[in-house]
Design a protein around this nucleic acid. Structure first.
Lengths: 357, 357
DNA sequence: GCGGATCATGGTAGCGATATCGCGCAAACA
DNA sequence: TGTTTGCGCGATATCGCTACCATGATCCGC
């Protein structure tokens, strides 16, 4: 009767018992090996590991969490619904969450709102950690509340690496440098720059990258061609209008994000200036807008999905390490992870038009 | 010893047993009630439901799936990465999925690609049903493959209700009527319309709504003011340019989606026409673009999130009903669900300017 | 009015893993 | 030598729920 396996058996997947039998030990020992067991002889461990490999065994999640391994609940907070960013983020997080067997709680959280209440509620509902995409990852009040609740957080794409805060990001400065070099390589000499919202530190980094690259190419930067924006379409439109009204307008404008770049294109069209023939415009972020408008924008793409995955990986691993005692407290151990971006060339850039040079 | 509750007890959460005790029945009956029990007396069901509410009981996911309730895997296929739409959709689906304890598999699927292969792979990986947002919900080849695999699908926002296909949608015709009436109420008489991509049936419905409302108001429609578009920014730009070049241009343009409306605004600005002072422009869908550009678009918002939730609800319930035998096969029982839309008034509309009248 | 179908419900046995004990056995101590 | 650790490991008891029968009750047709 033992050999007539219950038909309830969900799938042909091997179980701890199968592994144990093959390894010649008890299921308990198998479990110990799997969970970073400490008191297992090397020899035994190897046998178990071999058995696991041989059977292609993978622990059953449901059983594991039922048996006491409390579930891991991660809150993904978001504020600025830059939808393109959010959807990529969500997809990355969902993938990682299902892989890591963590439960993802997605919640909107406006910085202007009652942040403390949101955190308190989440903390009370047994949340184990936070994932904070921009602009939340730079919200000091929010970070303080989370720290008070003694909960770990992982920052996604903050401009600046905050000490003591684990983060996944790209190198904004270098990306801006690359884009600037790209413009210079096209032949542009008078290049304008529209700065992003000063409250987000990525703005300063992108500006610095721009200045660096210009300086390295031995090009002087006309301060009249560096205009403050706010990351909004409208601010880009205004900034571009201002630059194009100059006696000697730029032949290219690098906007610190796509929304502002789209505004630039609109401003140019209003002045009867063709993009990219008479003016090159490029953005940053590669949001949906970049490939919606016409001409489609040359921009910098962040690997948002991958960033989300890495962030969740790190967060979950950190929390598990604390739980099983192999780490005293959640700390940014691998500290900050920096991933690669891509320069996406589309249709909004070209060599400068001779008549405007 | 029975009263010294095991310290392994994960949380203070109530269990089926608690509910059963309170309801005066066995845990088994509680389980039946929860899972759309069929053979449960009305009286008993009510008692159980009352107990569940009183204890604020919620089934334990892990236990449920461990106990043999095979997991429900739903594939959400998407193609056109209109990011705004996608992120709303994802959030709605995730909410519903976590509530219903279904596993969501999100996958990109280009209609141009090898659809058959994608479906085959998914079907092989034990997918139980599909969620199809536009434009996939109108892809006949895709629907045929899914039908061949004998898997249920739920359409989200198809223009037309396809017989035999369960769907969640809004009334496109009525929404277009409402928007048109709104324009008429503002005083517009010469109203242009940009048709969407002819491959999506929503296009025809929106056009029909426009014509209906105009006719009802006793206004003649100048066929020169009805231009074919493609749902893209560029097509909207071209269509608007064409209309504005007419000897007697419209005072308002209703574009069948936001991208095209944004193109209209750009075309107007290029001609030195101010929006909304000299020209009213409105869109449809309320994607992120609508509130990104300037002026922000007056448009129609679909309750995408809610649509996603309803779709998943229906799909999961349908599948569970088939599984537990209370339905012979997945069928569009509540058939088509139609949800309400909202007319979002922003800054791109105004009463017609007298000088252009 | 009786056998057999159908219904509403309960008892029991797991699903696959881990928590908790406790047992041997070796090294370390008194 | 007797006792105390401590380590490596196994037996057992759940975790919360549902599948699978078994049960008694009601209902039907002949």
């Amino acid at each position: 009767m033992n050999e007539t396996r219950s038909r309830r058996r969900q799938s042909g997947r091997p179980t701890v018992n199968d592994v144990a039998r093959l390894a010649g030990c008890s299921p308990m020992t198998v479990s110990r090996v799997i969970n970073g067991g400490e008191t297992v002889r090397e020899e035994t461990r190897l046998a178990v590991e071999a058995a696991i490999r041989q059977l292609d065994y993978a622990p059953n999640r449901a059983a594991r969490s039922l048996a006491g391994a409390v579930g891991l609940r991660i809150a993904l907070l978001y504020a600025n619904p830059s939808a393109a960013y959010l959807s990529e983020l969500l997809i990355g997080c969902m993938d990682a969450a299902s892989r890591l067997d963590a439960h993802l709680v997605v919640e909107r959280c406006e910085p202007a709102g009652d942040v403390a209440k949101v955190i308190a509620r989440l903390a009370a509902s047994a949340i184990d950690g936070f994932l904070l995409p921009p602009p939340l990852c730079e919200d000091a009040a929010l970070l303080a509340r989370i720290a008070e609740a003694r909960l770990p957080a992982m920052l996604i794409g903050p401009g600046k690496a905050l000490p003591g805060q684990a983060a996944v990001m790209i190198d904004d400065t270098r990306a801006a440098q690359d884009m600037t070099r790209h413009l210079i390589a096209l032949g542009h000499r008078r290049v304008g720059f529209i700065i992003g919202n000063p409250a987000q530190s990525a703005s300063a980094l992108r500006l610095a990258g721009f200045r660096d690259a210009m300086a390295q190419a031995g090009l002087a930067v006309d301060e009249a061609l560096i205009v403050q924006g706010q990351f909004t379409y409208r601010s880009g439109l205004d900034a571009a209008a201002q630059m194009l009204a100059l006696p000697q307008p730029p032949t290219a404008i690098f906007a610190a994000n796509d929304d502002m770049a789209a505004g630039c294109v609109a401003a140019a069209h209003r002045c009867g200036i063709d993009v990219p023939r008479d003016l090159t415009v490029c953005g940053f972020d590669d949001t949906a807008l970049a490939s919606t408008i016409w001409p489609e924008l040359t921009t910098i793409r962040q690997p948002i999905r991958q960033m989300a995955e890495v962030a969740l990986d790190q967060l979950v691993q950190g929390i598990r390490n604390v739980r099983n005692g192999s780490a005293p407290a959640f700390g940014p151990r691998p500290a900050h992870v920096t991933l690669d971006y891509t320069l996406v060339q589309r249709e909004s850039d070209a060599a400068p038009c001779s008549k405007l040079r």
